[in-house]
Amino acid sequence: MSAINANSSFAPVLIVAGPTASGKSALALDMAEAFDGVVINADSMQVYEELRILSARPDESETARAPHRLYGVLSGREACSAGKWREMAMAEIADCHASGKLPIITGGTGMYLNALTEGIASIPDVPARIRDSVTAELEDLGHTAFFEKLAKDDPETAAALDSTNTQRLIRAAEVFAHTGRGLASWHKEPVITPPANMKFKKLCYMPPRDILYDRCNRRFDLMIEQGAIDEVRDLIALGLPESAPVMKAVGVRELGAYLAGKIDLATAKEKSQRETRRYAKRQLTWFRHQMTDKEIIDAQYSESLAAKMRHDINQFLLTTPK
């Protein structure tokens, strides 16, 4: 069924969120088939071209069932910020509405979802050359000296940072280098909010924890069978800095240690599975605090649950905003 009237002042967006390995991608795909939708990625690792297996990107059989967008669209040499993702997502959402399709945002990166639904500070995008320069400077100076320099340039931001958090240090320094203003100063600016006619329907799929953890374990086993080791080997061959976001995907460091002969494969797999479960646990906690009880689905996926969700989504689409 066609869900959208391109000329309507009502611009609906369905969000299917949840922790890693929860089955949210399958749920989003089912809803895309039911409502003539387009699945739009909101996972910070699935945007990278090099991480097809380790990020559990949809395969050809899934992408054949409904259009998928923002999967594998960036090189690992690029850093995808919440602002950059939001800009890409808004373009895809606008395209969906113009063509009468329902945009279905799915992923577990809470920062991306909040940037879309709640808004984001208007910080200019930082050119890759500046990010690379700042990253090289950190590697040359070391964390302590780099943090001390940042504290002199931008004391307000530095005061709220963990001096050992590489990614946040680089982000603060690159923004200052590009704009001459501190990150904390930018965060005081009015946020860029969603258009007034954009309405969100949120579903957060949270299966029981024991089932979720078992899925995490089994999914990593499958990743190994599908070629995750070769994927990590190819990624390492690019010579990217360890601070690059793509290098922080669960499994990259662990399988990299195996390829370097530092640990055996069984240990690498065990560590990767443990990190995946820890990541899932952090996501569960985040969603519990960010989503309402009505938005959270505490159940295993079944046809009866799917039917209820289709009914709820249909009611949302038929509702005319006052």
Rank of each mutant, 00 (worst) to 15 (best):
N197D: 15
F200H: 00
P155K: 11
I170H: 08
H143N: 09
L161E: 06
K152D: 11
D153L: 12
Q167K: 12
L138G: 04
I192A: 09
A184Q: 07
K202P: 11
Y213T: 12
H187A: 11
I211Q: 15
T144E: 15
T157P: 01
C204W: 07
Y213A: 05
T157S: 14
L169W: 03
C204M: 13
P190L: 10
T166V: 13
E148R: 10
Q167C: 05
L138P: 13
V191D: 12
N197S: 15
D154N: 05
K201M: 14
T166Y: 04
A145Q: 13
L203W: 14
A172T: 04
P195Q: 06
K149V: 14
K199V: 06
H178C: 12
L150I: 10
I192L: 12
K188G: 11
I211A: 15
K149S: 14
D210K: 09
E156Y: 00
Y205H: 08
T157F: 03
E189N: 12
N197C: 15
P207K: 07
G142M: 07
D140C: 07
A177N: 01
A173D: 02
G180F: 08
I192R: 14
F200M: 07
A145M: 12
Q167T: 13
I170E: 09
E156N: 02
L138K: 01
A151D: 02
G142L: 07
D162Y: 00
P155R: 09
G182E: 08
N165E: 07
A177P: 00
C204P: 04
V175M: 07
A184D: 00
K152F: 05
V175K: 02
K152E: 15
A177E: 05
G142T: 11
G182Y: 04
A172R: 06
E174G: 00
L169S: 04
F147M: 08
P190T: 05
D140H: 02
E189T: 08
L183R: 13
Q167N: 05
K201T: 09
L150D: 04
Q167Y: 08
D214W: 07
H178W: 11
N197L: 15
L183T: 05
V175P: 00
F200C: 02
P207D: 10
E189P: 08
E148T: 04
P155A: 10
K152G: 02
A196K: 11
K199R: 15
W186L: 10
T164D: 01
A177H: 01
E189G: 03
F147W: 04
G142I: 12
D154S: 09
E156T: 13
P195C: 07
I192F: 03
Q167H: 09
K188R: 15
L161P: 00
L203F: 15
A151F: 00
D140F: 03
A172D: 11
A173F: 01
K188Y: 02
L212D: 04
R168I: 10
E156H: 08
R209H: 09
L169F: 01
T164G: 10
K188D: 14
K188H: 09
P195Y: 00
P190S: 06
T144D: 15
G182Q: 06
K152N: 06
G180S: 08
L183N: 09
T179D: 05
F176S: 08
E156W: 04
A173R: 14
P155N: 08
V175C: 06
H143W: 10
A184L: 02
A159M: 01
A159N: 10
